[in-house]
Amino acid sequence: MNLLAVAWEYWHQSFFILFAACAIGFGFGVLLSKNVVRMAFYLVLSLGSTAGLFFLAGAEFVGAMQLMIYVGGTLVLLIFGVMLTAQKDFINMDTHTQDWILATIVGGSLLMVLLFAAFGAEDWSKPQDLTDAKIESTKEATPLGLALTGIRVDTLGDSGDAVKQGKSGYLMPFIIVSVHLLVVLIGAAYMARTKKLSRATDDKSSRAKLMLFKMEQETEQLEEETYVVTHRGQSALNRTDSQDE
């Protein structure tokens, strides 16, 4: 009870710790797991917790977008790829030991630098009094949409200089991203299409011959199998008949 009371008083912090632990913990799961499908599952949980952190920081719309596009779209795509290539040999792939050592050293030092930077600036590490902080239902979707069309409603209070220095909106990036998405759509569809020709058999007649040959082989095999099955079935039937008699 006492613990709960304390947790309530610091609810923002408690949820932060919960979500952060989930995000980083499942991130470790992605890193350490050898099974590629499990990695995908941990990645889903990690990114979901990240969305929780976004909600916590007051970015409701981005959090919902993270859930919808990232987790619902991108990761499904990834899992698609995993399942299309999930043959026995590729599900579990070991990492070389020297890779691990090198990556740990480089990654550890990188983490040190980043953490040092994160806690270095006094302005950033200034603690906020969040005991009474409530996530107000912020009306951010409309300003966000307007900013994408080039109108910044939120920076109007700023002085004129800020508006002039390129803070007037995101219409250009928005268009670039749209065109980019279109290009990606076409490009991905082009690259991932099934190739009908195999390089070895460019000649049409030879390909047809090859197909015919394959089909003949298959039918032969099928005939053999059916023969075996019927034969066995017949003999089994005979056997049961004789037993009955």
């Binding site: 610091y10 980083i24 991130g27 990240t50 953490l115 603690p127």
Partner: peptide, 19 residues
């Protein structure tokens, strides 16, 4: 717990980045 600030979010971001 009492001091969640931008830095802690940055720390989480840095950890995810390095991972």
């Amino acid at each position: 717990i009492g001091t969640v600030s931008v830095s802690w979010y940055l720390a989480v971001g840095a950890s995810l980045f390095v991972l």
